[in-house]
């Protein structure tokens, strides 16, 4: 029964996605950055996020996570106020930069989920740009399903993991 419901939801969402897919002008990526060689059999990457900062406070501005429905990348009605509050703050503080980190739940293919996380990050980015935030203030990264907020293979965990985190940068 659960499978039937899931399939139905999936088919419905896919239809929606097809209907609302945006058509940005394809542009080639920028030229390669300088490559670097690392003697790295050992450790790569540390846990402490030394690029992040506390950022603004307040009822809406302290909320930094935007959640999404299954297989969707449109900002839900219940997240509009949070996104608008960050948009207004960033428009008023043009030197402040944020990183939009897109995520997917664990179902499906990992690299395809990187694409889904990116689509969500871009949705928040477009909403902020439309509200007057400058392009230079925004960067996106997609972690796909690789960095879940919570462990677990149930609907509750999936819902918490389909998200964009707004990270204020130093």
């Amino acid at each position: 029964m659960k499978n039937v419901v899931l399939t139905t939801v999936l088919i419905a969402s896919l239809g929606f996605m097809a209907a609302c897919k945006t058509k940005p002008e394809p542009t080639p990526p920028p030229p390669p950055q300088q490559t670097s060689d690392t003697s790295g059999v050992g450790d790569a990457g540390a846990t402490v996020d030394d690029t992040a900062t506390g950022g603004p406070t307040g009822e809406l501005l302290s909320k930094r996570v935007v959640y999404f429905d299954f297989d969707r990348a449109d900002i839900r009605a219940d997240s509009q106020a949070v996104v608008s509050a960050h948009a207004a703050f960033l428009a008023k503080n043009p030197s402040q930069k944020v990183r939009l980190e897109g995520h997917a739940d664990e179902r499906g293919s990992r690299e395809y989920n990187i694409g889904l996380g990116e689509r969500r990050g871009q949705a928040v980015r477009r909403a902020l740009l439309l509200s007057g935030v400058a392009e230079a203030q925004l960067s996106t990264v997609s972690y796909g399903e690789e960095r879940p907020a919570v462990a677990g293979s149930d609907e509750q965990a999936y819902a918490l993991n389909r998200r964009v985190e707004i990270v204020y940068l130093k």
């Binding site: 990526p29 920028p30 390669p32 950055q33 490559t35 670097s36 060689d37 690392t38 003697s39 790295g40 059999v41 996020d49 690029t51 990183r99 990187i114 990116e118 996106t140 990264v141 997609s142």
Partner: peptide, 23 residues
């Protein structure tokens, strides 16, 4: 913090970043 593609020689462990473009 952002994605990059590396190649690594298995016998020596030496690695090289081959793509760290925007996005």
């Amino acid at each position: 913090r952002v994605s990059a593609v590396y190649v690594q020689e298995v016998s020596s462990g030496k690695r090289s970043m081959v793509s760290a473009r925007a996005g």
